[in-house]
């Protein structure tokens, strides 16, 4: 579904991605792991079209995304879950959910969203930034479900959440996968990653240095945690 080839990216003079190549198949959940500054978020932002100082090939279902702006990429089926939850203070919860257009056949109805996330229903008329951190994370995930995005780009959706809410995020991602959705996930929590993902790419200094399946990650968890500095 997603193919990245020879991707290089810079912030000014500093190169942050170097010849990154990876593929994500339809229905897969794939994680990007690495220390802070390894280039994980830049890779995700490059796929979304939010980081423009880049060179290389990115395609979605065979459609070249390289010259397409972020809003066109979203309409082709990319769903963005930002690391800071991306809540709008000037929009209510319902407005946050209905702002993006519905782009795919898997788009959830508002009723289904509110059934799945009763907390959001109770706070539906509140400004989104009045929600707790966990509720805002649920809102960010609910928003891309409402869009019906085919490929979710999730940047550390479990960061700062309680273990109970981390579990909840896992349930949602597994639900997306069971529904035929695809996820590219930036995740520092290796244990969590193995509970939701099929494959893992380890990034260091802007390169993919290892690609591992779940069994390999579980077998080498201690070594990998030490490598990630966790």
């Amino acid at each position: 579904m997603l193919r990245i080839d020879g991707l290089n990216a810079w912030y000014g003079e500093a190169q942050v991605l170097r010849d990154v190549a990876l593929e994500v198949a339809s229905g897969e959940v794939v994680t990007l792991c690495g220390r802070n500054g390894a280039g994980k978020t830049t890779l995700l932002r490059s796929v979304m079209g939010l980081h423009t100082q880049q060179r290389g090939a990115i395609s979605l279902r065979g459609t070249d995304l390289t010259k397409k702006p972020a809003h066109s990429r979203a309409r082709l089926g990319l769903g963005w879950v930002q690391d800071d939850r991306g809540s709008y203070a000037t929009l209510t919860v319902t407005e946050n959910l209905t702002l993006p257009p519905r782009v795919g056949p898997r788009s959830w109805s508002l009723d289904r969203i509110y059934e799945m996330f009763p907390n959001l229903y109770e706070r539906r008329s509140s400004p989104a930034t009045k929600l707790s951190g966990g509720e805002q994370q649920m809102l960010a995930l609910a928003r891309v479900l409402r869009m019906g995005a085919e490929l979710l780009l999730c940047d550390e959706p479990t960061e700062g959440l309680s273990p109970l809410l981390v579990q909840r995020v896992g349930e949602i991602l597994r639900l997306v996968k069971a529904d035929g959705g695809t996820v590219l996930l930036v995740e520092q929590n290796l244990h969590f990653a193995t509970t939701v993902a099929d494959r893992h790419h380890l990034l260091a200094e802007g390169r993919v240095v290892e690609s591992l399946d779940n069994t390999e990650v579980r077998n080498r968890e201690r070594e990998l945690l030490a490598y990630l500095g966790i």
């Binding site: 979304m48 079209g49 939010l50 702006p69 972020a70 809003h71 979203a74 309409r75 963005w80 930002q82 991306g86 709008y88 203070a89 000037t90 929009l91 407005e95 209905t98 702002l99 993006p100 257009p101 782009v103 928003r143 869009m147």
Partner: peptide
Amino acid sequence: MVVRAATERPELTRAFGID
């Protein structure tokens, strides 16, 4: 709603499919 969203967070709004 779109103008408010684009005013508050233009980059994020683009990522949600809004030109």
